[in-house]
Amino acid sequence: MKRQPLRLAIMEATRILDDAGVSSPRTDAELIAAHVLGVERGRLPLVPLVDSPVVDAIGQLVAQRAKRVPLQHLTGWAAMGGITLDVGPGVFVPRPETELLLEWGLKLLRGREYPVVVDLCTGSGALALAVAHAKADAVVYAVDIDSQALAWARHNADARVAAGDTPIRLYSGDIGDPTIFAELDGLVDLVLCNPPYVPPGTAVPPEVSQHDPAHAVFAQEGGLAVIRHAIALSARLLRPGGGLAIEHDDTHGTAVPTLLSARRVLSSVEAHQDLAGRPRFVTARRG
């Protein structure tokens, strides 16, 4: 069987993905190749030649990616913090920019013993499980309103427990319900929230419009409806010195800090940018 240079297969894959409008064609081509080969991306240079079936397998996945099927649906996983989670149809795919929000939250928890953490709109469970992995003594609660998302979160939570992480407490519920988590009022050290926040009618990439659940992406009131609920709930849950971090649309750079500043019990409101320099999340502390 004739062997072929892997670099040529990656170059061809990059060309196809670039022509298809994929935003990071070289990266995606390399990640697909790494997935097919079962190696880490950084080890690809150690695999100079591959068999024809490997090239064919890469080509099949590249063809799907060129149709704008999310890379994470093709590989079956997404990363958050120090863990990977299974993702696929029916659940929002975690994004790299949310890592910054997670980092802020973990920094807040440094030096706190047995902190109570709540992840609102948990989706795949990404933030909750990343916190439980990084902070083994944390008591982590997570909630979502969608049954499909919760099924993915439960699957991922079970996998993390099997890997040795602390279990999280997973709930089905509406964060707009004024009685939700009433037993935690004034006891929570950290609230994290990556809610649906895109204003309806906003143009989004095909990976989002065709594959992410719309209810996990778009929100009414110009994208602020769920964020308003998250702020109201957080103001009730947080203990003095506790912190809140909420991700938002890049058009909300003024609106969300204003909503947080309007809550008397919240202070130290701070806006944060993502790696591209766009407004992406806001943090606050309970006074």
Rank of each mutant, 00 (worst) to 15 (best):
M1A: 13
P5C: 09
R7I: 13
M11T: 14
A20F: 11
G21R: 09
S24M: 12
S24H: 14
A29Y: 06
I32A: 12
I32Y: 07
A34R: 09
H35F: 15
H35K: 07
H35G: 07
E40R: 15
E40N: 14
R41P: 06
R41Y: 08
R41W: 05
L49I: 02
V50L: 02
V55E: 05
V55C: 10
D56I: 12
I58N: 01
I58E: 04
Q60R: 15
R65L: 04
V69S: 03
L71F: 01
L71M: 03
L71E: 01
Q72M: 04
H73Y: 15
T75P: 04
G76E: 09
A79N: 10
A79G: 10
G81M: 05
G81C: 05
G81R: 02
I83N: 04
I83H: 05
T84M: 04
L85V: 15
P89I: 03
P96N: 10
P96R: 08
T98L: 07
E103P: 04
E103G: 10
E103H: 12
W104N: 11
R110A: 14
Y114D: 15
V116G: 10
L120V: 07
C121A: 13
S124R: 02
L127I: 15
A128P: 05
A128C: 08
L129E: 00
A134P: 08
Y141M: 08
V143M: 12
D144Y: 07
D144I: 06
S147C: 09
H155R: 15
D165M: 10
P167D: 11
P167V: 11
R169G: 02
D174F: 01
I175F: 08
I175G: 04
G176F: 07
D177R: 02
T179E: 15
D185M: 07
L187Q: 15
D189Q: 04
L190D: 03
L190H: 05
V191S: 05
V191L: 04
C193H: 01
N194Q: 00
P195H: 02
P196D: 05
G201A: 04
P205K: 01
V208L: 00
H211E: 03
H211K: 00
D212H: 02
H215W: 05
A216Q: 01
V217S: 03
Q220T: 03
E221F: 00
E221T: 03
E221Q: 15
L224A: 05
V226M: 02
R228D: 05
H229F: 09
R236K: 14
L238I: 08
G242I: 06
A245W: 04
T254G: 10
V256C: 10
V256S: 09
T258C: 09
L259A: 08
A262K: 09
S268V: 09
E270T: 15
H272A: 11
L275F: 14
L275H: 13
L275N: 12
A276N: 13
F281L: 11
V282N: 06
T283Y: 07
T283Q: 13
T283I: 12
R286A: 13
